[in-house]
Design a protein around this nucleic acid. Structure first.
Lengths: 136, 136
DNA sequence: TATTGTTATACTCTATAACTATA
DNA sequence: TATAGTTATAGAGTATAACAATA
């Protein structure tokens, strides 16, 4: 079987990302959150008071898609919303949200360590800079 | 703004892949195909006669999801199906499919070249091996 | 028994457009 | 005028389960 895609960085990027995201979501599933929810909670934890729009811009998620995401985390009791002015709300973690974020952080640490462990040693030093150059 | 995700290879991988896939799909849109359809056509072109299940295994797409994908390409007149035995069919490109695949290949070449151009020079030699190690 | 192709179905993420209320 | 949050909606991709026909 000839594989005309195997030498293409763009294709390898997509397959690697897809594979790692599946693994990450599997690791997160006992916590009852998706990778998107997880990154949202970690971002709020590090930036208490940021708005939904701020979050969307940081995570590359459109405003229209932030609404149901934040609504879900609110329904689960993980975040609180406090009006900043008449149209925006500062986001913060509740105590349950903070505990969940701590559990998420542990999953992230394990996941990232195992990802790095799979990389050829010579690739490790430049890997993240290479990826960042493709979207930063 | 503190970004707790920026130093994480897994997160950078997801963002880089997402950004590159959006760009790739935008480049393909004048041809009327998605990236998934494009990779399917290139794979069939290099492996005339392969079955749907073979394709699914090569591309990491489940059998159940191959059916509508192949059906769509058939409806568009891009592929032909020839019975191999009573249950499987060998896939081949039609002439229109072959011409489309050639156009796709040009888009791929431009896309991959521009992707590589964005990488730090020191990262280029190890980039694809690093990605392949995450799913191969 | 295992495999191929198929259908039905559901979920997540993404995208655009349009609305309201506020700045 | 521009921004924040929301709703509605549509599309792509992915997942599982089940089925008939065939190997």
């Amino acid at each position: 079987m000839i594989d005309p895609l195997k030498n293409l960085p763009g294709y390898a990027l997509r397959r690697a990302s897809s594979s790692m995201m599946t693994a990450f979501n599997n690791r997160l599933s006992p916590l009852g959150v998706s990778s998107t929810e997880a990154s949202t909670l970690l971002m709020i934890k590090s930036n208490t008071g940021m708005t939904q729009s701020d979050l969307g811009r940081s995570l590359g998620i459109k405003r229209a898609n932030m609404a149901p995401l934040i609504g879900r985390l609110d329904d689960k009791g993980m975040i609180s919303r406090t009006p900043v002015d008449g149209r925006s709300q500062g986001l913060a973690l509740t105590q349950a949200g903070d505990e969940l974020a701590a559990a998420i952080q542990k999953v992230v640490d394990v996941h990232e360590a195992q990802l790095i462990a799979r990389l050829p040693v010579v690739a490790r030093a430049t890997f993240i800079e290479a990826l960042s150059a493709l979207w930063d």
